[in-house]
Amino acid sequence: MRRLIGIRALVAAASATVGVVAVAPPGYADPSPTPSSASVVRAVEVPETCPEGGAECVDGTISELGERFAGLGRACAHHTTFTLAYLRTTQGFKWGRDQGIFTDNRWVNREGALFAEYYYRAYDDWAAGRRSAVPAAWLAALDAARDRRLTGAGDLMLGMSAHINRDLPYVLAQVGLTRPDGTSRKPDHDRVNQILAELVDPLLAELIARYDPDGFDVGIPPEVVLGLLVSWREQAWRNAVRLTNARNPFTRAIVEFDIESSAVATAAGLATLTSYLPPLTGPGPRAAHCAAHHADPPPVAYPFGVPPAY
């Protein structure tokens, strides 16, 4: 019963991203004099690296994510779970694209490349100590992983929330929500959900086998996780519409503040529910398991096959 209550609370907290104007609790503040994770960083448009939307956009993203994952995974860094999930999702995206799932490959290629740039920018600014440039939701996720405060599921969900709830609305608004003829690109946006549905089970199996068997044993069915991701992606589209329809800088600032503060509130709720509870629980078993198994191959095939460990 206690586990069931915890699961429901986790899903409820993760879903509470709409219209929330809140900041992280004091426990999320960084002890340094630099801005805390409660600070709201105004969105800065990230330059596109693949504006033409060629097939090489996705290949380049897979290569870059693979390099980042390899370094983190071999070090058993807690940032690994999100980066692995991002890599496998992008590989799945390429597979789905090549199956003909999308109607406009150039648009989705362009979107995917820009989406990854938002993650690179946040992580690299954080790693370089440029905390004032890092969005608050990303500070929460990256700091928690650095400090090894959360389970594998917590690290994964904070990263996913920052990237979907915070980054994705800006990416969508930047690449455009409509075709030249005025029709909506929403159908292609929604088709990504079909790919995610194919990835949830093998990804969970790989995360458990290689990195954290206990941290992902939370009793939440994969279809519930998928439903949460789909709801986040739906809200990201709606927030992108709000950004696009903002008629002046003041209106745009209000929308941005809502996006940023909602993402921080979600991070705070997720962190509270997935934190270790010393001395009862801690990162030690996870570290030991990762040291022994991080180089193991994925135990279950993905739709695109069985990728190498690194």
Score class of each variant (00 low, 15 high):
P303V: 11
P26T: 01
I7S: 06
R131H: 10
R185G: 04
F93P: 01
P169N: 09
S184H: 04
D155Q: 11
S63E: 14
F216E: 01
P35L: 07
I195S: 04
R233D: 01
G66F: 02
E256H: 07
V40R: 05
F257V: 11
D143T: 13
P180H: 07
G305R: 13
V300N: 10
A291G: 12
D59G: 04
A75D: 06
Q91K: 14
A43Q: 12
L280G: 02
L228T: 06
H79S: 08
T34P: 00
A24N: 06
H293V: 03
T178L: 11
L158G: 00
A153R: 00
R130P: 04
R191A: 05
N193S: 13
L150F: 00
A140S: 12
P135C: 09
Y120M: 11
V18E: 08
G112V: 06
A13N: 04
G112S: 15
R166H: 12
F257I: 10
D155C: 15
R74F: 05
G182N: 06
L228A: 07
A85Y: 03
F257M: 13
L204R: 15
G129R: 08
N193M: 12
P307G: 07
F250M: 12
T272P: 05
V44R: 15
P221W: 06
S184W: 01
R121G: 05
A263H: 02
A122L: 04
D217R: 15
V300L: 14
V46L: 10
I220L: 14
A24G: 11
R166E: 09
E117G: 07
A141K: 04
A113D: 00
G154F: 03
G215C: 07
S184Q: 07
L142T: 01
A122W: 00
W126Q: 06
W232Q: 03
D30T: 14
Y302W: 14
W95F: 06
P222T: 12
M1Y: 13
L4M: 12
R286Q: 11
R286L: 11
S39Y: 04
L203V: 13
P31I: 06
S32F: 07
T83D: 10
S37L: 09
W107I: 13
G176S: 08
A153N: 06
P298G: 08
G219P: 04
A145G: 09
E234F: 05
G154M: 03
V264E: 06
Q174F: 01
A133P: 04
T244E: 12
A128Q: 12
P297I: 06
A127P: 10
Y211R: 14
I101R: 10
E234V: 13
P51Q: 10
R149S: 13
R242W: 10
Y170F: 15
A267V: 07
V306A: 10
S39G: 00
L203M: 15
D201E: 15
W107P: 11
Y120T: 11
